[in-house]
Nucleic acid binder design. Structure first.
Lengths: 322, 322
DNA sequence: GCCTGCCATCTCGTTTCGAGATAGACATGA
DNA sequence: TCATGTCTATCTCGAAACGAGATGGCAGGC
């Protein structure tokens, strides 16, 4: 066994929690084989660890025979001591985690207007019901400014968008596909439209620095296509109103127009050849990672998202967890 | 963190002794960097482990700043608990090892006649003084029968010989070189003699199944040499007496004739081209490995051997320990 | 502006761990 | 006597964990 740092003397034996757990488990089961089944560990691993304890202490702890094991006098001493230690550890874990069972305080979250349209209500409700001592401050905005403010540490958490496969340390909440948002009663009437045909529709889209705009523009450029951008507006609700009033089309993700689409106020037509996707991700301010309140909200958000998607309140896909 | 067996739930956090030791060390040092120096562990390792504790408990334990660290309220709780746990472990180790601090009982050891000549007296004395509650039963014999008896489990321990580099689970106590044992006043008078010249001397050597005999015979055969074996005697003292009386020469290791050589009753001449060496090893009966008494004697023997060699009471070399 | 001190992160080689297979020992029943 | 079953010990190998060393970022002092 390698020197463990705190006691650098070579070959010094230091008992380990795992070994104690295995030892107690074996004694209580009465055999390595039964303990293996109970503890869901290979019998050979138990055999090895108990043997390491015996070698470390320089004394035999178990008597082995064909019917199993029984403890020696030394083994009884260790059993008693091990139970005390394991109990202490259990109490420690309970005490330390208990202090985060009811986290409290203020948590700030930045959220893009699009995602906010499906997520802000349910999230606020969930936090209120499940984390009653947490005050969630939600700041909605366009993604450009949100990225900057998050980078500046203005929020504890932020919902952001990413098109790259790699999202680093962030959690992927959902994947969305961009679609053509169509005024009611207007063509096209098919379920999908090729990217190359989008030029036929006059578009109201966000400003050039907008994440949505850049995502789509990149793909369009890559495919040698063009778009008929008539209006550049950094106001999602304005864009949606224009579509509802038949003044323009737009290219958005389902979260942005989930409600209007479900009420028939706009229609969505899938864009294909290629499908344009992006991820909705959750970023955490590294400084706040270990805050119990932030941690709790951070764990709650994916659940809210999953519930929305599975309840067909958001047309997106939940990413696979590996 | 992998499922630890006793709690197979994935990702379940289980505090580890090492982490607690590191945490306490860091808090007491007031900084990771100072703790690293104190604990002889890389600062990055401490940082990582404490962070794992924080992530596992879901709460921040330390406040870090440019002057070092201080504990949070949660950290204080953990510090208190950790000290209790580490103390319990220390007491456990003390209690368990204390029961082997004064091992008692009978220990049997087989020892070849050659090695017994230098080792049996000092070993019995050492056991008597350092392990007063142990009764050491020493059985001397030729190595052939000793090997068989040890294999049959007749002894707890056995001192044996090996010529191969690999000695498996056994402990190497010493290395010896075979030499020509010469009657006083007889040639050769040089300090060393080539193997090829040994045929000039009439030899009294042990019987064919003897370890000594086989070790030398193998090397002689490998070098295309011959020996003039006049007497085959399975009694070491008889062989030595014959040499002392000028009736024969012999080929033995220094342990066999250490006393007679030191009294001028025989001379030793180093055999070269090649030097013939063998190891003196200590074997333990696997069934007895964990007996405290056997373990204590097992640890004592190398010390006795080392003292003999370093005190020039045995012309052999102590093996390097890697 | 530079230096110092401190912590966090990354890479890489080493060590440890556990699963699975297998062998040996022993008792029981046919 | 042989086959079977039960139990423990040992070995191999792939995966995971660990720690050293290097490096970067940040803040304060000179």
């Amino acid at each position: 066994m390698k020197a463990l740092g705190i006691m650098p003397q070579l070959d010094l034996f230091v008992v380990d929690i795992r070994q104690l757990r295995y030892f107690v488990g074996v004694v209580e089961a009465g055999s390595f084989t039964k303990a293996a089944a109970t503890l869901n560990v290979a019998q050979s691993a138990l055999s090895l660890h108990v043997r390491q304890l015996e070698e470390g202490f320089g004394t035999q702890l178990l008597v082995r025979d064909r019917t199993g094991v029984s403890v020696t006098a030394s083994g009884d001493k260790l059993l008693e001591r091990a139970r005390i230690i394991l109990k202490e550890i259990q109490l420690t874990e309970a005490e330390l985690t208990n202090s985060v069972a009811a986290p409290s305080g203020e948590v700030t979250i930045g959220i893009p207007s699009g995602a906010a349209r499906v997520l802000s209500g349910p999230l606020l409700e969930s936090v209120r019901s499940e984390l009653p001592r947490i005050s969630l401050k939600m700041i909605e905005g366009m993604t450009g400014p949100l990225e900057e403010w998050m980078a500046a540490g203005r929020f504890n958490l932020a919902v952001l968008y990413r098109t790259a496969e790699s999202v680093g340390q962030m959690t992927v909440l959902a994947r969305e596909e961009f679609c053509l948002v169509v005024p009611p009663g207007e063509p096209p009437f098919e379920d999908s439209i090729p990217l190359a045909d989008l030029h036929a529709f006059p578009l109201a889209v966000p400003m050039r620095n907008n994440n949505v705009r850049r995502s789509v523009a990149d793909v369009v450029a890559q495919h040698g296509c063009v778009l008929d951008v008539r209006f550049e507006v950094d106001s999602l609700s304005t864009i949606i109103n224009m579509v509802m009033e038949g003044k323009a089309y737009s290219i958005l993700t389902p979260s942005a127009i989930q409600k209007e689409a479900s009420h028939g106020q706009v229609r969505t037509v899938k864009i294909i050849d290629p499908v344009i996707t992006r991820s909705v991700v959750l970023a955490v301010n590294p400084k706040d990672e270990r805050s119990p309140a932030v941690s709790a909200v951070r764990k709650l958000i994916p659940k809210v998202v999953k519930t929305l998607i599975e309840g067909k309140h958001w047309s997106a896909t939940v990413p696979d967890r590996v």
